[in-house]
Design a protein around this nucleic acid. Structure first.
Lengths: 336, 336
DNA sequence: CTGTTAGCGCATTCAT
DNA sequence: ATGAATGCGCTAACAG
């Protein structure tokens, strides 16, 4: 280890260009020298220095991932999808999380500068000010679940509005009129879209529309737990609760069960995201399935295509439709 | 973007060495030139090319993370802990997962070569053959939850054996004698240690010791679900089930509830890891808490110390004690 | 086919 | 205090 191309050349008794040619198959080399080089490489355990290649070729074989946070099943699944996919193409993943503030977002972007060939960004709370910086990053950028407006980079979004609209309508159609809603962070677009989907569905389909039914949350289990506590005190009491994401719904579920409420006889609970544990919550959680892994794979494929110049960024916004996963048997269903 | 130190020098009317000196504060520069340089840097948005620095300094400000798989809450929490910590020190995280086979492990290691200053490896199924390659990686390596034997790199492990021993003993003391166990992958040391902890506790404390009570699993929810199905058919039926990890316990829980079994009146269920959702499973899951984030922080600190030559690798094995988290109220407890 | 040479962008001597 | 020159490891263009 630690050997350079020069060491290999010396050991094989050839010039460094010959070594390079053998390694990169960039020109034909006599069989004799080829074998001597190959052998020397093996013995020395030689691996080209990525920094030198990067300096020369302006490419790093690395994809940068910038996420608003890393926690919960959602991100594990996302990262796994990203990693699996880039590995297929010989790329590496550089990961950096920021914590919902512009400065850290900038820092994360900055730190990736020239360390990655392309960037995969998730920034549900992206502002136009930050957006301009994204574009100037100097490398192809693909966004996931991010409100990009200026059409400078391609985006893969979920139909957060439509998914929540459908979920809410479903509940109204099942006879619920007072449906409480636990919101996500009001700085994030996906959370806002879900809120609007809920509001519109309630309005259009004949549910109670009242701001009092909306409880401020932040996508955490804890906020769901607290919201449920307030919801139970309401009079008249809502007959259904929707969490802006699964975690807040799970928090609510937790509190209701503790309070002796029967689900769904007394109150129905639904979430959003379709994280694995919704399948084995008790009772299992009706939710809207977000194909996280699928979007990860698609986004990476798109990004790699941009890198190979097969495509140019067109500011395309892909909105993926979402499907409700209905699980409302009283007891747990056999599906896991 | 895309500007080099030469561009900055030209714009400021100085030599590149002066620019370098200003940027790195490596020598004193006249106030006038300093300001011209600073201004030029600002206007051009200049950032040094990491590849050049890396080539020159043989350092990348990057920590590599090699994990056996990325899924579930466990890894999300681990990664979050790692990322938070390295960010404090201006490092970046390069992540690569492998899927329980030696070839992918080698590939992951290989791909990190010279791209990272240090390596954080988790390889519960590490064999001695692979271990030797780890050592030759050419950069400091710190392991987590990995059976390193040759004492060449430092390790932070959990007391998997002791934790499971304590958990099993706890159940025996509560009157259980027939305790079923859902194992983890038999290629992984942590899973084996947990199994041995279970066996020894049963033996020492007076439970039924029978291989028939052991069900082969692989840390997944699904295997727990299937194992529970077989366990229910046993005669006499076990009165308790321990999953080698929380996910398999949750899978078992899921099946039991579906089958109308009351927990814990009919059968008690316990897991291992203490992932967040054990707090809002129904009923909440008794488990052994593994301080994932804590170990992530410690391991990174240790690795960074190695990098700064404050310490040299001594083959130290740190075994962290584990604590049982008992949650066995019939209904969910108010703690979330 | 093969060896020599010129940079990639930068920190670092070495002169001045 | 500052500029010129060297080289980190490598590929590619250039001569043979």
């Amino acid at each position: 280890m630690g050997s350079t191309i020069r060491d290999v050349a010396q050991r094989a008794g050839v010039s460094i260009s010959t070594v390079s040619r053998v390694l990169n198959k960039t020109a034909s080399v006599s069989e004799a020298k080829r074998r001597r080089v190959t052998e020397a490489v093996r013995v020395l355990g030689y691996t080209p220095n990525p920094a030198a290649i990067s300096l020369l070729k302006r490419a790093t074989s690395t994809i940068g991932v910038v996420l608003p946070y890393i926690s919960g099943e959602f991100f594990a699944e996302l990262l796994r999808g990203l990693d699996d996919t880039v590995q297929e193409y010989g790329y590496l993943l550089m990961v950096s999380a920021w914590h919902r503030n512009a400065q850290e977002f900038r820092a994360a972007l900055q730190s990736m500068y020239r360390r990655v060939d392309g960037l995969l960004v998730m920034a549900p709370g992206l502002t136009t000010a930050l957006e301009s910086e994204l574009i100037e990053e100097g490398c192809p950028v693909v966004c996931i679940n991010t409100p990009v407006t200026e059409g400078q980079c391609d985006v893969f979004n979920f139909d957060n509005y439509g998914g929540m609209y459908a979920l809410t309508r479903h509940l109204v159609e099942r006879g619920h009129t007072r449906i409480a809603f636990i919101t996500g962070p009001n700085t994030e677009r996906d959370a806002q879209d879900r809120l609007h989907g809920y509001r519109d569905a309630v309005t259009h389909c004949g549910g109670d529309q009242s701001k009092k039914l909306e409880f401020a949350g932040n996508f955490s289990v804890e906020c769901g737990y607290e919201a449920a506590s307030k919801i139970l005190d309401m009079d008249p009491r809502p007959t259904a609760i929707i969490g802006a994401n699964d975690q807040s719904a799970q928090g609510a579920l937790r509190h209701l069960l503790y309070s002796g409420i029967r689900i769904p006889e007394d109150i129905s609970v639904a979430g959003f995201d379709g994280i694995p544990s919704t399948r084995y919550s008790t009772p299992t959680l009706t939710t809207v399935h977000v194909p996280i892994r699928g979007i990860a794979v698609r986004a990476i494929h798109h990004l790699l295509r941009l890198l190979s110049n097969e495509k140019s960024p067109g500011g395309h916004v892909h909105v993926l439709p979402l499907e409700i996963v209905i699980r409302e048997s009283t007891g747990p269903s056999p599906h896991i």
